[in-house]
């Protein structure tokens, strides 16, 4: 069966439009939570690219406390249970990563060291690290940053062991 599916290519995958897709003028930069229950996208709100979070099951828009300003937003990324949403935002002339903790309501503005601007980001499923794409002397670079002193881990239910940052570290 498996080999047959692979040989045939698409097999029986179910494709559906993301919730709200028909009503929205444009949806970009999709990011799923690790558990697959939430979807963050960038939508056009009165001409301003703004992050929006949706429950995949019922299509409802989930409330965000800190992302009504500082557009344009780009490159959203979610942790496993969707507790943390990381987004690149604009403050003055600077691009800046902001992480919203949906559990506590706290916001963490995290500028890049050295006055650089992030271009894309990816949050680790447990939110212990973040990978940022930056421009450096005409080249794209990816740099990893430790978030373990800033955020509590957001692990899948029942998973005790995490991948400690110290194992990754310098």
């Amino acid at each position: 069966m498996l080999l047959g599916c692979l040989a045939l290519g698409s097999c029986t995958n179910t494709v559906e439009r993301a919730p709200g897709g028909i009503l929205q003028r444009s949806q970009q930069d999709p990011a799923l939570s690790g558990n697959g229950e939430m979807l963050a996208v960038i939508v056009d709100q009165r001409g301003r690219p703004t992050v929006q979070l949706r429950d995949i099951q019922n299509g409802k828009i989930l409330p965000l406390r800190h992302f009504s300003r500082h557009q344009p937003h780009s490159s959203p990324s979610l942790s496993w249970n969707g507790r943390y949403l990381a987004v690149i935002t604009q403050r003055g002339n600077r691009r800046l990563m902001i992480i919203e903790d949906r559990l506590s309501g706290r916001v963490h503005p995290l500028p890049l060291p050295g006055g650089r601007d992030p271009v894309r980001l990816s949050l680790a499923p447990d939110a212990r690290q973040v990978a940022l794409q930056v421009a450096d002397q005409g080249h794209w670079r990816v740099e990893l940053f430790d978030l373990s002193q800033i955020l509590e881990p957001d692990k899948p239910a029942g998973l005790q062991s995490s991948f400690p940052s110290t194992e990754l570290g310098s």
Binding site: C5, C11, T12, N13, T14, V15, E16, R17, A18, G21, R25, S26, Q27, Q28, D29, P30, A31, L32, L39, V41, I56
Partner: peptide, 18 residues
């Protein structure tokens, strides 16, 4: 989740992999 250019706009499709 995949961002798709379709009819001059960006959509997001969800694919449940069987």
């Amino acid at each position: 989740a995949v961002q798709v250019s379709r009819d001059g706009r960006w959509d997001v499709d969800l694919i449940r992999l069987s």
